[in-house]
């Protein structure tokens, strides 16, 4: 009956990074489930960075927006950097108008740029 419940969003590990590609219009429970799933995966794998690809999402409302920025803060406490990748222009404009400017959340145009950003993060940490 609840066919949404069945779907689990896959988390892929490449090197020391996790890659998550959100392909469905998530309902709230699925969004929260994804949040804990990613955090668990960070703990399990010791990943230093998470790339969350939202290029397919046609809408990010305040709930998903808060889930994503919460995700970034939580991961950062666990010493992992989160990069939100591929937000659509219309989604970005709407989020800003909604009042969710997501300060402190790293963003990248595409996976490649996101990866570069994480590499840079790592490099600057290594410099310290």
């Amino acid at each position: 009956m609840d066919h949404f419940q069945e779907k689990k969003i896959p988390i892929i590990k490449i090197g020391s990074y996790l890659i998550v590609s959100i392909q469905v219009d998530m309902h709230d429970k699925l969004a929260l489930q994804l949040q804990s799933q990613i955090l668990e995966e960070i703990e399990k794998t010791g990943a230093k960075g998470v790339l969350i690809d939202i290029s397919v999402l046609e809408m990010v409302d305040s709930f998903i927006g808060r889930m994503l920025s919460g995700m970034a803060s939580m991961a950062s406490i666990m010493d992992a950097a989160v990069v939100i990748v591929g937000m659509q222009p219309a989604v970005a404009i709407t989020l800003v108008e909604l009042g969710l400017e997501m300060p402190g959340v790293d963003t990248a145009l595409n996976m490649e740029r996101g990866m570069e950003l994480l590499e840079r993060r790592m490099a600057s940490i290594n410099d310290d």
Binding site: E58, D61, F63, Q88, P89, A90, V91, I93
Partner: peptide, 15 residues
């Protein structure tokens, strides 16, 4: 952009 605005507003109120 208009589509996204209205969908987002509707989503907020539905929640």
């Amino acid at each position: 952009v208009e589509q996204t605005r209205i969908t987002t507003a509707v989503s907020e109120l539905l929640r």
